[in-house]
Simulated scan of single mutants.
Amino acid sequence: MAAKNINEEIIEELYSEALVLADDARAAFDLSFNENQSNADDLTRVALSIEGLRTTTRVMHVLAWLLNQRAYFAGELSRQQLERCGTLPEERAADADNLQRLEPETRALIEETERLHARVARLDRDWRATGEEATPVASLQGRIAQAFAIG
């Protein structure tokens, strides 16, 4: 079973939020239609490209994690499959120097995707922690550690 703090409703709400952010990121970082950046210097365009890639990758990782959770709740993935394939990759935070070159709206979007990733990462850690405790070996290791006051 999934962790107590993860349920289908939470996953669906996060999924909807991630889809909106993905669409917003696509619009914000679409360089071919970004008229506001046409007057920007080369370093600003490079910063926009780098942070655009980081932001869209971050959102896609979150969406992939959420899709795996949805598949698990739908019975399409077993817990073992989810544990093996459903890990949320580590966050690659935005570069502060790049952020200084971007417009406030773009920075706000990047920060919003970072907050979403952090929330999903907490869910992933909690879910994995409950999964480890559920195994007999982990349970025995925990009892041994308590008996010998380890860690």
Rank of each mutant, 00 (worst) to 15 (best):
E35C: 08
R58Y: 00
M1N: 14
L67C: 13
A74E: 10
G142W: 04
Q37H: 13
F73C: 06
E133T: 12
N34D: 11
A47V: 06
F29S: 02
A134V: 02
D42S: 15
Q81Y: 06
L82G: 02
P104R: 02
C85H: 15
T87F: 07
A28Y: 07
E12K: 14
E103K: 06
Q69M: 09
T130Q: 14
E114S: 08
I10G: 14
K4Y: 13
L19T: 10
M1T: 14
D24Y: 03
E133L: 11
V20I: 07
L48V: 06
S139T: 08
A71T: 01
R26S: 11
E51A: 11
W65Y: 08
V62H: 04
I150V: 03
G131H: 01
R101D: 06
Q146F: 00
Q100L: 05
K4E: 14
R119S: 06
R119N: 05
E9T: 15
R115G: 09
N39R: 14
E111P: 12
A25C: 04
R101L: 09
I11E: 01
E35K: 10
I6F: 05
S139I: 04
N39F: 10
A118D: 07
D95T: 12
L19C: 11
E111T: 12
R45W: 04
T55K: 00
D126S: 10
N5Q: 11
E17P: 13
V46G: 07
Q146C: 01
C85T: 15
M60L: 08
G52L: 00
A149N: 09
L99V: 05
N36A: 14
R45L: 08
G151Q: 10
Q81G: 05
H61N: 08
R125I: 12
R115C: 10
M1R: 12
W127H: 14
D97H: 13
L99D: 02
R107P: 12
I6K: 11
A129P: 00
E35L: 13
R107Q: 14
T56F: 01
A40H: 03
N7R: 11
R143H: 10
K4V: 14
L102Q: 05
K4H: 11
L14F: 15
L109Q: 03
A134W: 05
E8N: 10
L67H: 12
L99A: 08
P136F: 08
D24Q: 12
A108W: 00
Q146D: 06
E9P: 15
L77I: 06
Y72H: 07
E12G: 11
L21M: 04
G151D: 11
E51C: 06
Q146M: 05
L88I: 03
S139R: 13
R70E: 01
L66M: 04
P136M: 05
V20W: 04
E35G: 08
S16T: 13
A134K: 04
A28M: 09
T106N: 06
L67N: 15
R115S: 10
D126A: 15
K4D: 12
A18I: 00
L140H: 03
P136H: 05
E133D: 13
R92M: 13
A27C: 04
E111Y: 05
R119F: 02
L19K: 13
R54C: 07
S78Q: 00
R79A: 08
A2S: 09
C85W: 15
G131Y: 03
H117A: 08
Y72F: 07
Y15N: 11
E105H: 09
